[in-house]
Simulated scan of single mutants.
Amino acid sequence: MLKSLFSGSGPGSKLLIALALIVFLGLALTPFVFSGTRAMETAAKIAIFIVLVASYDLLLGYTGIVSFAHTVFFGFGAYGVALATQRLGSGWDALALGTLGGVILSVVLAFGVAMFSLRVRAIFFAMITMAVASAIAVLVSQLSWLTGGEDGMNIKIPRELTPAFRTDLEIFGTKITGRVLNYYLVFFSAFALFLLMLRVVSSPFGRVLQAIRENPFRAEAIGYRVVVYRTVATCLSAAIAALAGALFAVWLRYVGPDTTLSAELMIDILLMVVIGGMGTLWGAVLGAAIFVLAQSYLQVLMEQAAGATAALPLLPDLLNPDRWLLWMGILFILSVYFFPTGIVGRLKAAK
């Protein structure tokens, strides 16, 4: 079964397999290996962003569709959970209904955008999706009676997933609380969604998508309906992004325009795809892990480095934690220069 799953979509390099295993084991064991809430927050964010970035790679890397509306579907999933729990309470049925509603709305919007836009050239499709994303973000901000506006919404979740829920169970010296259960809900859901996407890209459907990406005219000539395949890929990508948004809402217990619909988030997704490598899915694993870790800990590392070099001229100023975005930009430029096909692409080429 595993051989069938990874056929044509496996890591393809021993070093890449090792890195993927490190990420998997790190995420799987975070509550028991790393102390404090920050490590678990970072690990949960990595797991969610792996799914979100991989779903975008399914669209960009495998189908060749450039979209700037992917955060809209992520936001629909999050707001679906928020609205359902606000009206129906904090039960599991509300979570399920909100998630389903967010997925359905995302698929409907993706289908509409695809049917109206996928027949135009790539740059015009990208501009249309950018306009849709901007319009949705403005709409969500203005409908404060429904969405909470700029202030966002707090989310009610089952008590079993909150820090207040405690059990007598202890594993490796760590008490199993609702926060730990919430983390593993996110982790296993993200893992299952990633395996689903691997299965999709290794299937005949996934190979047709890659053929369309390489030469849509030839794919059309040999009998494949390019618009249909692109529409299905767009809807599938939107559904998975909505599920990632629902997981994000359940974990964060808050949703707002800045956390789910911002242009900055769309740029972050693009950066993670480019850093990891387009058209691989495994690039989402490494790209998300590296980017989120840098976001979470680069300032801390820079503060320590600035303190260690305090006696030297100029260097402490350059390593000032307030300049972490500058160093993030430099790291991105270096990654593009040395890994033009992404980390995964470079590792596969060097195997």
Rank of each mutant, 00 (worst) to 15 (best):
V180K: 01
Q295V: 09
G277D: 06
I343R: 08
G149Y: 02
T231I: 07
I171A: 05
L314V: 12
V140G: 03
A114F: 04
L19T: 14
V103L: 07
A310P: 01
A78Y: 04
E150H: 11
V140M: 10
S67L: 00
E170N: 15
A219Y: 06
A249I: 05
W145K: 14
G148T: 01
A114P: 04
T99N: 08
Q86F: 07
A349K: 13
I123K: 01
T280M: 07
L146A: 12
I240N: 13
G61L: 08
L25I: 13
P257Q: 02
L326C: 01
A114R: 08
T174Q: 13
A114H: 08
Y297A: 06
M266E: 03
P158H: 06
I65C: 07
V186W: 03
Q86D: 11
A137D: 04
F187D: 07
Q210A: 07
L105V: 15
V186G: 02
N320W: 00
L195K: 09
S203V: 08
F111Y: 13
L169Y: 11
G206T: 02
I65K: 05
F205N: 06
S55H: 10
G245I: 02
M127T: 01
A78W: 05
M272S: 03
W145N: 15
L243Y: 06
T231L: 10
L334C: 05
F74A: 02
A82H: 03
F74Y: 12
L2A: 04
I136M: 02
A306V: 09
D258A: 14
Q299L: 11
M1K: 06
I269V: 12
L252K: 09
L312R: 02
L270A: 11
